[in-house]
C-alpha cells in the first residue's frame, strides 16, 4: 500500500504545536514502501508526536501527510485500516485474555476470517499455550509480542513502533530486533520506529532521521550519516579549569566546545591526539575522558554539540512510561 512513487509515508511541512510549544517543526520526509525508517533523537524531541500525527491520533497544526496512499487528515479511516501500532508502554487490555485481545482487535478492524491468522500469529510468537490467560499475567516480553501480534492481525501496510525496546532487558531487546527485522522482511511491512538508542537505529533501520527540538537535523542511511563525520570526539572533564586556548593548541584538535564543566573536542583521530592531549594537560587532574568513534551518536554531537542523553532533559512523558513498565513488572 503506497502512493504512485512507492512511498508508504510522505510528510510535507508537518507541524504540530501545543499552545506556544512547537513539538514538530515543518518536517519533510518520505518512507519508501517495505523499508525500516527510524526517528532517532533525545526524549522530548518530537518523535512520538510525529507518530501521533501520522496515525491520526492527534491533528496536525500545519502541513500534509499521506500514509499508505491516503491523506491523514481527509481520509483518516482509510489510513487506520492500513496501519498497525506498537506503543512504547505496551498497551493491552489486562482484564482480557490474549485471544480476547485479538478478538477485539479483529472487531475494531472489522475483519472476517481472522481466527486462522490469529492462531498462526500466536504460534509464531510462541504464545499459543497462554492464549486463554489474562494478558495482565504475561511477562513483559510476552506482552510486547502480543502487542506486535495485534498490530499484524489486520495485515497492515505500515507498522508504527514507538520506542519498541524501551524498558526491556537485553535478551528481550535482541529478540525484538529479530522480530522487527523478520516482520519487515517476511511480511513486507513498512516499519517506522522511534528510538533514542543509537545502536537500535543503527542496526535496524534502512534510513534514519535524526531529530532534535522538533526538527530533522540529518537524514540518511546509517552509514551515510556516519561517513559524514570524519572525526572522533573526545569528551573531557578535568578537576581544575582548563582554558579553551590550551585545548585548541593541542595538535589534531579541530574544534573545542564547552559542555557544562566538560569539554567536547572534535579531533581527526583520537588515537593520534590523546598523547598530545595528555602532555598538554600535565599537572591537571583528568576526571573523566571518553572517546566517541564515528557513530550515530557522534553525528548527533557534531550537529547539536551535545550528547543525545544530555539533550531534551526531564521528560515527564517518558517517566510515566517507565513508571508503568515498573508497575506492570511488579504485578
Amino acid at each position: 500500500m503506497s502512493d504512485e512513487n512507492g512511498d508508504a509515508i510522505v510528510a510535507e511541512g508537518l507541524t504540530k504545536r501545543y499552545g506556544a510549544i512547537t513539538a514538530v517543526d515543518h518536517v519533510n520526509f518520505r518512507v519508501p514502501s517495505g523499508s525500516v525508517f527510524g526517528l532517532l533523537g533525545p526524549n522530548g524531541a518530537g518523535k512520538t508526536t510525529i507518530i501521533k500525527v501520522l496515525t491520526g491520533l492527534s491533528d496536525m497544526t500545519e502541513g500534509t501527510a499521506r500514509v499508505a496512499g491516503y491523506d491523514v487528515r481527509k481520509e483518516p479511516m482509510h489510513v487506520k485500516e492500513r496501519i498497525g501500532w506498537v506503543a512504547a508502554e505496551v498497551i493491552l487490555d489486562d482484564d482480557l485474555s490474549g485471544w480476547e485481545n485479538l478478538w477485539l482487535q479483529a472487531k475494531l478492524q472489522r475483519l472476517s476470517g481472522w481466527t486462522v491468522r490469529a492462531e498462526q500469529l500466536l504460534e509464531y510468537f510462541e504464545l499459543s499455550d497462554r492464549r486463554k490467560d489474562k494478558v495482565g499475567k504475561y511477562s513483559t516480553g510476552m506482552r510486547k509480542k502480543m502487542e506486535i501480534a495485534l498490530a499484524l492481525l489486520h495485515q497492515p501496510a505500515i507498522i508504527f513502533m514507538d520506542e519498541p525496546t524501551i524498558g526491556l532487558d537485553p535478551n528481550v531487546r535482541r529478540m525484538l530486533w529479530k522480530l522487527i527485522t523478520g516482520v519487515n522482511r517476511e511480511f513486507g511491512v513498512t516499519v517506522l520506529l522511534t528510538s533514542h538508542y543509537i545502536e537500535e537505529a543503527d542496526s535496524l533501520c534502512d534510513r534514519v532521521a535524526i531529530i532534535d527540538h522538533g526538527k530533522f537535523v540529518a537524514t540518511g542511511t546509517p552509514s551515510e550519516l556516519k561517513s559524514r563525520v570524519r572525526a572522533d570526539f573526545i569528551e573531557l572533564e578535568t578537576k581544575g579549569d582548563v582554558s579553551e586556548e590550551r585545548l585548541r593548541a593541542v595538535p589534531g584538535v579541530s574544534e573545542v566546545r564547552s559542555q557544562g564543566k566538560a569539554w567536547i573536542l572534535k579531533v581527526s583521530s583520537a588515537e593520534d591526539v590523546l598523547p598530545g592531549l595528555f602532555a598538554a594537560l600535565k599537572g591537571d587532574v583528568i576526571r573523566r575522558i571518553n572517546v566517541e568513534k564515528p557513530s550515530l551518536e557522534s553525528v548527533f554531537i557534531d550537529i547539536t554539540g551535545k550528547r543525545m542523553d544530555q539533550a531534551g532533559g526531564g521528560d515527564v512523558q517518558d517517566f510515566r512510561k517507565f513508571y508503568m513498565q515498573v508497575r506492570r513488572a511488579r504485578q
Binding site: Q109, R110, L111, S112, R174
Partner: peptide, 19 residues
C-alpha cells in the same frame, strides 16, 4: 534462550476484510 527466537516464515493467510 529467549534471545534465540526463530524468525520462521509465516504462511500468509489473508484476513479477509468485510466489504
Amino acid at each position: 534462550m529467549s534471545g534465540e527466537t526463530k524468525v520462521a516464515a509465516l504462511p500468509s493467510v489473508h484476513a479477509v476484510r468485510h466489504g
